[in-house]
Each structure stands twice: as structure tokens, then as C-alpha cells.
Design a protein around this nucleic acid. Sequence first.
DNA 1: GCCAACGTTGGC
DNA 2: GCCAACGTTGGC
Length: 136
Amino acid sequence: MKHWLVKSEPEAYSWATFVREDGTAWTGVRNYQARNNLNLMQPGDLVLFYHSVSEKAVVGVAEVTAQAIPDPTAEAGSPWVAVALRPVQALPRPVSLAQLKADARLSELALLRQSRLSVLPVRPEEFDVVLSLSQP
DNA sequence: GCCAACGTTGGC
DNA sequence: GCCAACGTTGGC
């Protein structure tokens, strides 16, 4: 099982909406590196849900429920894909970008190294560190 | 194939 | 609001 992180601007698509809809097709990714990561996702993989821009914090954990298919919001024949995600749990407390940056165990975190990429791999130990940081 | 121009993302 | 990083586009 692999671990990932996806970003969303809460004004565009928030964790609350994601929970209310009980999951969604993760469409609209238009970057090749992010697309490659989507293609590597398998059902059961766990995904950190990050609110970018206005909040800058990991807010929840999602699970991949369907592997990549052609993105229905893209032109037919385009290379873009979408996976299906569903919410697993909100974090007890959001883990802010500042917290992530401050933790030496997360110095290699892909989010911190490639801040513009919207679909990123997370190492299992990094995933566990983020969860532990969210504990009250 | 190179590179300048331009657009977008996202942190500050 | 600004700007750095970075991806894409298009002229040459």
C-alpha cells in the first residue's frame, strides 16, 4: 500500500465538501508528473488531503477507491486521468505547513520539495509522522 | 533543439 | 499584492 498527498484550494473544493459528497472523482489534474502519480495509485492507498493557499494545512485522510481512468472532464484521447477518492477521517487537528516544515523527520517531504505539484507521494513513515502531529 | 515570453500555482 | 518556481508555448 502506498501513501500520497493531494492538494486542493478549499475555496475550489474543500474537505467539507468532499465529506458531504462522501467522496469524489479526482479530476482536473493537468500536469504530467501529477498524472503519473495518479496512475500509480491503487485502491486502498491512503491519501493526505491538503488545503493549499488560504489554509495551508493537511486536514484529512482519504482512501483511493478506484484506480486511474481517463479523466471524464478532459477531451477524449487526452492523456489526463482521474482516480476515485473517499474520505476516511478528518484529522483530529489540522497539521499546518509550518508544522511540516518545522519537523526534521519531514525534511524530505515531497510537498516541501516540490511545492507546486498537486499530487505527491508520501513515505509511510512520513505519513505516520503527519498523523502523530495531528493528535491533540 | 534552444530559449524568451508568458501563464499558473502557491507561499509569504 | 508580490514574487519565486516552474510548466508550456511558440519563434527562430
